[in-house]
Every structure is written in structure tokens, then in C-alpha cells.
Write a protein that binds this DNA or RNA. Structure first.
Length: 503
RNA sequence: GGCGGCAUAGCCAAGUGGUAAGGCAGAGGACUGCAAAUCCUUUAUCCCCCGGUUCGAAUCCGGGUGCCGCCUCCA
């Protein structure tokens, strides 16, 4: 079985064959850094994070490029509102991006180009288009001429005549054609500007991605990804300008993730119905969000709600309980020992193959997770009551866990220690929304109502142990209830009592 | 108006021709002093509706209905 991917170009699933065997060049449209990221950004980034992880797991040498668009109208507007330089705006939100996404456990791309650092390349590309008669200059602006590119619309399935008919009335009269778009924009006084053959100005949207992807991956590369909303016009325009300039095919596979919905409606800035990533991460552990996102296919719409997150947490807790047991086995000195094959162990032993089969089918993480849960049930059957007393079972359990761990790793799950996961406190809490105006460090400082210390928990567990030994069960139950009210859950195992935060 | 997508149990969600994965929630049982966790059993005679193709369809075709997205900044 080989990997197949759904290619927006052509709207069908097709076998994935990279340009150079064993190597993959992948460009993902990053964010325009003028505001905090919301869950929609999280979905896109997690989706492609998993795709990169899987490609690497499958043996490909991946060059992963993800840009920051750090100059555009919205950034300039924000800078003007605040009366600060645009670079200060972009720095703030790039920092925020890393803070948020590092917590989500995103891999850092191999290259993270920024538009402002590629101006010479952008200017050169625009000049190449002008020279080739594919673009024209009007009063310091440069427009791409759609008419000269017969393939226009091939990605989004649009036809040029329909687009013209539907074009807005307030068409810029300086354009030859309403569909033409800006490659270079002349700057007004006071705006950020770079020198160019057409006078001082800045890049239009779209061109930076063409310039940066081609610089880092070549004129033709394997995968170009982004959110569904980028198909038109962003990616359509990228194709037009890139292919018109080089005469070569641009990206070979176009992958687009579906939206995050709220109450079945697209979450977006313009609708105002979005949650920032840090709003969400104030309420749930980052990995819970990751699990939630991985539990649907990346192209399906996914509805965000408190209930879905609660369910995701329950599922992820179950996975971490398995890791907890594996850690206990290791701590008891067990070393992995072979698992006897048989019907009982089959879901476990076949998990890697079935995981690969699911992921090979256009990165079907939902099906892959299903197989992992099958494996988990089989693995739990092997769980020793007390690892140090049942070395054989402990060894098999550990071996089973180690079989699955690399698969979880592909999904970016179970990366923390179990104790760390269960006894982790959320860094900061949601207090009526953490706004963009609030500095990140302020937000982090807002502490949950002071909780019982870990020493105190241990003390009470010891008191309860003594009460139970004396058969004073009423007292023991009272201690357990008190702790539960404080958000601490006790679990009595054969080897003693452990605790975890409930949240 | 043009183009595209979706509709599977209480909820979430796989499944694109061979007779309904998985998760959450629920029920019963084992274990436990009682819980929690874990294990076992159980929960869709059926996949929006109506036709059709087929030995056989949730899966293919035609027609409906409902919802959503893109066509404008947007992951």
C-alpha cells in the first residue's frame, strides 16, 4: 500500500509520488502576523504538523517550509492604530505565535521565511513577470495580467467569465481586467516601503509565497498546503504568477484543511465568532486540543464546543493511563519481552500496519486513532496488577506500549510523561477572555484559585492509608471526597494510591 | 447566480460495492471495604428521503430535502 493524498488540483485522491524519490518539499501558508491565532490556525498547523511527522515516519526526507507574512495592509492598519512601527506589531504576534504553538507541540519547520526578508527575490520575480509581458505597471503599482494565463481557475474550478461577471462594481479602474491582482503596491507617505524599479512600495499579497517557496524548494516542488479558504484567490494566484514566470508546473499536490466551525458555522475573524488559541489553552491542556483535532479527518469540517473538548479529554486521559502503566513497568525494572501472538493480542500486534494503512489513505487520523484504541484495549488486557510482582506481564506490557509509542508520536500525542500530564496545572486561566491587548505575561500570571499543594496531597493520602489500615472507612472516604472537591482524584492500585488532577 | 462539500447511534467520528471501526456518554457483570482505573458483555436490522443499477449499496446513478463553504480579508 502506498500513500495517496487528496489533491485539490483535480479534486481527487491520487498516489503520492514525489519529484525526487525519498524526498519531499512542502510549503505551508503560515499566518499574517497582525493578531493572535485562533483555533482555525491551530487546526491548519496541527494538520500539517501531523502530515510532516507521518511523511518522516514513512521514511521521507522532508523539507518543511512555513512562512510568516509580515507585511500587508492589515499589519499597517494595526500599526497606525497603535502608533507603533509595523515591525513591532509583527514581532509581537510572531512571539505570540511561537508561545501558543510551542505549547501545542508543533514541530518547527526547517525554514520559516518572512516576506520582509525576501524583498529582493520578490522584486526580481515581479520584474521577471513584467519583462515577460505577464504583468504591467500603473503609477507605481504592478498588476498581474490574468488574461495572459490560460490556466487561471484550474485549482479552484472557477471559470474566468463567471468571475468577471461576478466581479465587484468598485473595480479599480487602473486595472486592465477586474481579475488582475496586485504584485507590487506603491507606498503612500509614511508607509513601510522598499525600493523597486517601479518606485518605493511593498509586495502585494500572494507574491511573497511564490517567491519564498520557489527560493527554498525550487520552481517545482511537491506539496503546497493551507486552509481551504486559501484555494481562491491566494493559491490560484500563486499558481498563475509562478507558472507564468517559470513556465513550469508550480506545486504538484495541493492539500487543504477544512474549517473549524462554531455551531456549524465557519469560525473566522470577519464573523467574530472565534476563540483565540490562548483562550482555549487556558481551559484545556494543549494535547487535548491536538487529540480533538486528530479525531476527525483533516479535510472535514469540525465543530468546536466545550462538549467536544470534554470528550477529547476523556479519550486522551485513557491513553495516558496506558502510558502511566508502561512507566510503572519500566520503573519496576521490567524490560520488553515478546508478546505471544494470538487472537487476543492481534489488535495490538497489527496496530502498526493498520495505522500505516489508515495514514496512507490521505492521512486518515480518525481511522488511525480507532486502530490505536483497538490496540489499547488489547494491551490493557496484559496489564500487570503490580509490575514488580509480575515481571512477565510487565515485560509484555512494556513491549506492547513501545510498539504503539512511535505511532502516537506521529500524531504528536503522548509526548509528556504520564505524571507530568495528570499532575500538570494549566498555566493560566480564562478570565472572561484574554484579549490581544493583554500582554502574554500578564495572562500567564493569572493563577487559578490557590490549590492544595502536592505535599498536602501526599500528607492526606498517607492519613487515608492509615485510616484504611485501621478499617476506619468513613474517615478514609471523607479524605477522598475532600480531595476530590479540591480537584484531586485518588486511585487505589495494588502498589499504592496515586493521584491526578481532575480538570 | 456560478462552483464545491456534507448528511452514519444520545453526542463525536471512520467506513466509496460484500452485509455497520473507534471514542465519549449509558446499562449489566468481574475486581475493590466502597470508589476510581482496568477487563468482559451490551447499546444503529441499519447509514436524510424517493427511485434506479447490481446476486449484493451507507457506499454507484438519477431526482428531492436540509446544512455548510468558496466566488471579498481569512487556516
Amino acid at each position: 500500500m502506498t500513500l495517496s493524498v487528496f489533491n485539490t488540483m483535480g479534486n481527487r485522491k491520487e498516489p503520492f509520488v514525489p519529484l525526487v524519490p525519498g524526498k519531499v518539499g512542502m510549503y505551508v501558508c503560515g499566518v499574517t502576523v497582525y493578531d493572535l491565532c485562533h483555533i482555525g490556525h491551530a487546526r491548519a498547523n496541527v494538520a500539517f504538523d501531523i502530515i510532516v511527522r507521518y511523511l518522516r515516519y514513512a521514511g521521507y526526507d522532508v523539507t518543511y517550509v512555513r512562512n510568516f507574512t509580515d507585511i500587508d495592509d492589515k499589519i499597517i492598519r494595526k500599526a497606525n492604530q497603535k502608533g507603533i512601527p509595523f515591525a513591532e506589531v509583527t514581532k509581537k504576534y510572531i512571539d505570540a505565535f511561537y508561545e501558543d504553538f510551542d505549547r501545542l507541540g508543533l514541530l518547527r519547520p526547517d525554514v520559516e521565511p518572512r516576506a520582509t526578508e525576501h524583498i529582493p527575490g520578490i522584486v526580481a520575480l515581479v520584474a521577471r513577470l513584467v519583462r515577460g509581458g505577464k504583468a504591467y505597471e500603473v503609477g507605481g503599482d504592478v498588476y498581474y495580467s490574468v488574461k495572459g494565463f490560460p490556466g487561471y481557475g484550474k485549482l479552484s474550478g472557477k471559470n474566468v467569465e463567471d468571475l468577471r461577471a461576478g466581479a465587484r462594481v468598485d473595480v479599480d479602474e487602473r486595472k486592465n481586467d477586474p481579475l488582475d491582482f496586485a504584485l507590487w503596491k506603491a507606498s503612500k507617505p509614511g508607509e513601510p516601503a522598499w525600493e523597486s524599479p517601479w518606485g518605493p512600495g511593498r509586495p502585494g499579497w500572494h507574491i511573497e509565497c511564490s517567491a519564498m517557496s520557489m527560493k527554498h524548494l525550487g520552481e517545482t516542488f511537491d506539496i503546497h498546503g493551507g486552509g481551504k479558504d486559501l484555494v481562491f484567490p491566494h493559491h490560484e494566484n500563486e499558481i498563475a504568477q509562478s507558472e507564468a514566470a517559470t513556465g513550469k508546473p508550480f506545486a504538484r499536490y495541493w492539500l487543504h484543511n477544512g474549517f473549524v466551525n462554531i455551531n456549524n458555522e465557519k469560525m473566522s475573524k470577519s464573523l467574530g465568532n472565534f476563540f483565540t488559541l490562548r483562550d482555549v489553552l487556558a481551559q484545556v491542556k494543549p494535547e487535548v486540543l491536538r487529540f480533538f483535532l486528530a479525531s476527525s479527518h483533516y479535510r472535514s469540517p469540525i465543530d468546536y464546543s466545550d462538549q467536544s473538548l470534554t470528550e477529547a479529554k476523556a479519550g486522551l486521559d485513557r491513553l495516558y493511563r496506558v502510558k502511566e502503566k508502561a512507566e510503572a513497568c519500566r520503573a519496576a525494572g521490567a524490560s520488553p519481552s515478546p508478546i505471544p501472538p494470538g487472537e487476543e493480542a492481534a489488535p495490538l500486534l497489527s496496530a502498526p500496519a493498520r495505522f500505516v494503512e489508515a495514514m496512507d489513505d490521505d492521512f486518515n487520523t480518525a481511522a488511525a486513532l480507532g486502530h490505536l484504541f483497538d490496540a489499547i484495549r488489547a494491551l490493557n488486557r496484559l496489564a500487570p496488577g503490580e509490575p514488580s510482582a509480575e515481571r512477565d506481564r510487565a515485560g509484555m506490557f512494556l513491549a506492547g506500549y513501545e510498539l504503539l509509542d512511535p505511532l502516537f508520536s506521529v500524531l504528536g500525542l503522548l509526548r509528556a510523561g504520564a505524571k507530568e500530564y495528570f499532575q500538570e496545572r494549566l498555566d493560566f486561566i480564562h478570565v472572561g477572555g484574554i484579549t490581544a491587548e493583554m500582554s502574554i505575561s500578564d495572562a500567564v500570571k493569572v493563577e487559578l484559585n490557590p490549590r492544595i499543594t502536592e505535599d498536602e496531597i501526599e500528607r492526606r493520602i498517607e492519613a487515608r492509608r492509615a485510616a484504611r489500615a485501621a478499617r476506619q472507612y468513613a474517615e478514609a472516604d471523607r479524605i477522598r471526597k475532600d480531595l476530590e472537591a479540591a480537584g484531586v482524584l485518588l486511585e487505589d492500585g495494588k502498589a499504592g494510591t496515586t493521584w491526578k488532577y481532575k480538570e
